[in-house]
Design a binder for these strands. Structure first.
Length: 513
RNA sequence: GGCGCUAUCGUCUAGGGGUUAGGACGUGAGAUUCUCAAUCUCAAAACCCGGGUUCGAUUCCCGGUAGCGCUACCA
């Protein structure tokens, strides 16, 4: 049977790395086995679901590099025979099967009020008993239940769970067994007629012919409830089943991703939504690669860099680890630096431009000249950043120059107080300012000259020059930075880039005082 | 409280009845005749605890502990 897997997020917020990893593993499994990847939207929690998140969800998944054969954005004629793919549009289905289940005696109306149940729960807790539904309405004669219901009494529908252990083979965790008396009779339909999660998933997964349920291990304890639903459905007389046999899918429960403090990863841990990573200039291939290695490793385990196709090739559920993993932004950054270096410079530039713009360093639509220059800037600065959002900070040596401030800086003062510093700067300025533009040749010649006349070299030669030119004793290669400074000074920018000549002038003036 | 899942360097992990317990990130040191970064080289760094099984357990079993999850008319 062809593999069919699904990713079923709730549109209650931005897509989170934890969920993204679940989606990725499902996708990898589908692609590896030439199966079908289904996207289903679990929006039954009307209070928290928002339509706008659905579009963002799909955008985020695509950004990561994932695609799907069936989903809410697919027209009925383009595959998607198992739709609709929004739970909110499947209500009739849930209700129909609930009726069948009641007719078959596998489910029953429950007239207990939430308050009542809450009281029972508290009593059970106080007595140290299992906090599950007491089964109060279980024994109600069906005829009585129906007439009460028809008389307008509100009722939920509960599953009658048989008294037998529920066992399954988890593809990741191995054999898992639950006793029926820890689950009680779960709610199928709420009293407002909507489906509860543990019921809706089963109807959906069953009807959609899902063969492998790959999801977070927070669902492990829900699995027996869902199994009981499958079993009840499978016992339904065949005309009622839409040709679905309600066979149990295979389950694979993925370990949780934790934050550095060992608690479940959440917004408290800072940047965790895909949208946020995208804005920060994390490359999607870096994130996908990193996420794949969180909880999965190839056999052998000594390879780190995988493209999406390579992951598909290497992926298997057997190699998925059972223990929870801590999300490590430092390693993500290492991976991102790797991919940043590998990437086509034009692509990196395209991603960097909006970031420079947001920082106010460039204007609205950069022309060809500016683009070319910016490309040089990015190339020079790239090895120094973890992600693209750090570019503007690094680029301050180009876009900003404040002689007085750099002279006042403590670190700089130490360098400037060195015996040869003044001589170096004066000598360099004199040489460098001979021409209007400081070319690389001129720059090198000037340095050479100063080196000879002052007998300073290494740090004591370069650091004062750096401070005069950029305001900082350290930074990128000077002979690459200088031409960029000069070229930048000839471009239209929101705040003009100062030329080397101007910088030296301002510096010397400020230093006199 | 009950039930479940998990446990190898700080972190992600490989491995598996006998190994110098491997790799990667990070950290430290060194190299690279401009610093910083990058890069390269080297180094330090781990089998949660207690029982059992066994000639031999980090590996298998049991218990403990810890972390996490579920215990909803949330998903």
């Amino acid at each position: 049977m062809a593999v069919r897997v699904r990713f079923a997020p709730s549109p209650t917020g931005e897509l989170h790395v934890g969920n993204a990893r679940t989606a990725l593993f499902n996708w990898l499994y589908a692609r590896r086995n030439r199966g079908v990847f289904v996207l289903r939207i679990e929006d039954t929690d009307v209070e928290r679901s928002e339509a706008r998140y659905e579009g963002q969800l799909m955008q985020d998944l695509r950004w990561l590099g994932l695609d799907w054969e069936e989903g809410p954005d697919h027209l009925p004629d383009r595959g998607g025979a198992y739709g609709p793919y929004r739970q909110s549009e499947r209500l009739a289905l849930y209700q129909r099967y609930a009726r069948e289940l009641i007719a078959a005696g596998s489910a029953y109306y429950c007239f207990c009020s939430p308050d009542e149940l809450e009281k029972d729960r508290r009593a059970a807790q106080a007595a140290g008993r299992q906090q599950i539904y007491s089964g109060k309405c279980r024994a109600l004669p069906p005829a009585e239940a129906i007439s009460r219901k028809e008389a307008g009494e509100t009722a939920s529908v509960r599953l009658r769970v048989p008294d037998e252990p529920l066992r399954f083979e988890d593809l990741v965790s191995g054999t898992v067994e639950f006793s029926p008396d820890v689950i009680g009779d779960p709610i199928l339909l709420r009293s407002n007629g909507t489906a509860a999660y543990n019921y809706a998933v089963v109807i959906d997964d069953g009807l959609m012919q899902i063969t492998h349920v790959i999801r977070g291990d927070d669902h492990i304890s829900n699995t027996p409830r869902q199994m009981a639903v499958y079993h009840a459905l499978a016992r339904l007389p065949s005309p009622a089943t839409d040709g679905c046999d309600w066979r149990l899918p295979q389950f694979a429960h993925l370990s949780t991703i934790l934050g550095p403090d060992h608690t479940r990863l959440s917004k408290r841990h800072g940047v965790t939504s895909l949208a946020h990573f995208r804005e920060r200039g994390i490359l999607p291939e870096a994130l996908a690669n990193y996420l794949a290695l969180l909880g999965w490793a190839p056999s052998g385990g000594d390879r780190e860099i995988f493209s999406l196709p390579e992951l598909v090739e290497a992926f298997s559920l057997e190699q998925v680890s059972r223990s929870p993993a801590i999300f490590d932004p430092v390693k993500l950054h290492w991976m991102n630096r790797h991919y940043l270096k590998q990437s086509d410079p034009e692509r990196v530039l395209d991603l960097a431009i909006p970031i420079f713009r947001a920082a106010g360093q460039i204007g609205e639509s950069p022309g060809e000249d500016l683009r070319r220059w910016l490309r040089g800037v990015v190339e020079l600065l790239l090895p120094a950043v973890d992600d693209l959002s750090q570019l503007p900070e690094q680029a301050r040596v180009i876009f900003e120059y404040d002689a007085a401030a750099s002279i006042a800086n403590d670190e700089n003062q130490q360098v400037l107080a060195e015996p040869g510093a003044r001589q170096v700067i004066e000598g360099f300025a004199e040489q460098a300012q001979q021409d209007e533009e400081l070319t690389v040749e001129r720059f090198r010649a000037a340095l050479d000259h100063v080196k000879k006349t002052t007998r300073q070299k290494g740090k004591s030669l370069f650091q004062p020059v750096r401070i005069a030119l950029t305001g900082s004793p350290s930074g990128r290669q000077l002979d690459r930075l200088v031409p960029l400074l000069e070229a930048g000074s000839r471009l239209e920018l929101p705040k003009p880039v100062k030329s080397c000549r101007q910088r030296l002038m301002e510096f010397q003036q400020a230093w006199q005082r």
